[in-house]
Computed example of a mutant assay.
Amino acid sequence: MTSSDLYPVSRVAAVQEAAAKAGLDALLLTPGPDLRYVSGYEAKPSERLTCLVVPAAGEAYLVVPRLELPSAQASPAARLGLEFVAWDETDDPYAMAAARLGKAAKVGLADRMWAMASLRFRAALPGAEQVLAGSVLRELRMRKSPAEVAALREAGEAIDSVHRRVPEFLRAGRTEREVAADLAEAIRAAGHKTVDFVIVASGPSGASPHHDVSDRVIEAGDPVVVDIGGTFPSGYCSDSTRTYCVGEPSAEFAAYYEVLRQAQDAACAAVRPGVSCESIDAAARDLIAEAGYGDYFVHRTGHGIGMETHEEPYIVSGNGEPMEPGFAFSVEPGIYLPGRHGARIEDILVCTETGGERLNNTSRELVIV
């Protein structure tokens, strides 16, 4: 896919329409996923203000430090017909952005805007109520276009290729940290621009869902949870978890791993347009609870994914939002026995017109290395 597919010219107009419908006078988007989603510009956050101002009516414009103007002009944002408003070191860019915007009663701030910038905008627009831009952008960002799905599929295939290499790195006598270093290198070699996380959780470390890595030496018989992901040059993310075992697993672990595999399959099979996010969570959670492990499944079943590893929709009890084609999200139930071991299986799925398409396709059977 090309940048024009991922960041179409029509997106600014769609955002303006959504802002007007929500009763906002403008969106103020500073560096982060919201800005990149709308414009394609991967601006670097700093104390110097970069801000895409998208008024509900009128022309959008990008306020940018003059020293960063060449980078902005070289980005996909240049295709959008935006005015680039460059500011010099002695200017007040917040006042510049506010003056061009005029009187505003309600503005949406990028969800990842620094507090420093939020407070400066509050001073520059004293009469404007501030809300999160995500309240407007969520409806657009949740529904992935075919180009966005293709970008996620590319990232998913790349992270699958890394999981296929895990048996090269994982063996008794190595530390979690040593294995993680090899995995990070493999993630980059597979085409990712950045390595966002590497979890290698062996033995009792596996009972902590977000363990990260440590200097623990992996032992024979250890189950090992490997959760890895990164961001592709497209701006779209990968995220996949598989559980391995160094040598033959114990009967207890093998038994609850099979429960987990069936629960993950059940949740994936439940995906189709119109079903609620919480019903997909329940499809996995009910099977795990029936097997007696309900107290050991301690997190939601999944999260949306796109330009952020974690974004809406969230696959969790209490979220009655119905699935729609284009929703992209993880399905990742886990079972964690404190002080002993744990397991998780995670795939990224996209809701299609007829069901759910898995974007990760390595084996979900327990891999013995």
Rank of each mutant, 00 (worst) to 15 (best):
Y293N: 07
A186V: 01
F84P: 08
G221A: 00
Q262R: 15
E178H: 05
A150I: 00
F169M: 07
M113G: 08
G306R: 05
S118D: 10
A86S: 15
Q16C: 00
Y236R: 05
V200Q: 08
D286R: 14
V225P: 05
V85A: 07
C268P: 03
G306S: 04
S202T: 07
E157W: 03
A72C: 07
F169I: 03
H310L: 12
A151H: 01
L170K: 07
R242Y: 13
D5I: 00
P76Q: 02
K103M: 00
C268S: 14
I218E: 05
L62Y: 09
E148V: 01
G302V: 13
H303G: 11
P45I: 09
T175Q: 09
D215K: 08
R340M: 02
C268W: 09
L170D: 06
V85F: 05
Y61C: 06
G58N: 03
G229P: 10
P325G: 03
Y236L: 06
R272G: 11
Y94C: 02
G23A: 09
V166K: 03
E290H: 07
L52T: 14
A184Y: 03
T231S: 11
V367R: 14
G355F: 04
R165S: 09
A282C: 07
M116P: 00
W114D: 14
A190V: 04
G304N: 12
I315C: 12
T231V: 14
I187C: 06
E332I: 09
G292T: 05
Y236S: 04
T50V: 15
A123L: 07
P167L: 08
E321W: 14
G23L: 10
L67Q: 13
G306A: 04
W87C: 05
R340G: 00
L49I: 10
G318K: 05
H192M: 15
G235R: 03
V298T: 15
E185D: 10
I305V: 15
V179C: 06
A180S: 12
Y61W: 14
S330Q: 13
S75D: 02
D196H: 09
M323I: 11
G320R: 15
E148S: 00
D92S: 06
D88Y: 08
C245Q: 01
E219K: 13
S363R: 13
A95Y: 00
R177W: 10
A78H: 04
D88T: 11
R122V: 02
P233H: 01
G355R: 06
P204D: 06
G32L: 10
M1L: 00
Y257N: 02
S214R: 05
G304V: 12
P76N: 01
M113H: 09
A22N: 08
A115L: 12
L152T: 03
A291N: 04
H211F: 15
R340C: 01
D286W: 07
K193L: 14
P325S: 03
S71P: 00
R285G: 04
G127D: 11
H303E: 11
T50I: 13
L349V: 14
V166C: 04
G302Q: 13
T194S: 14
V162Q: 05
R48I: 01
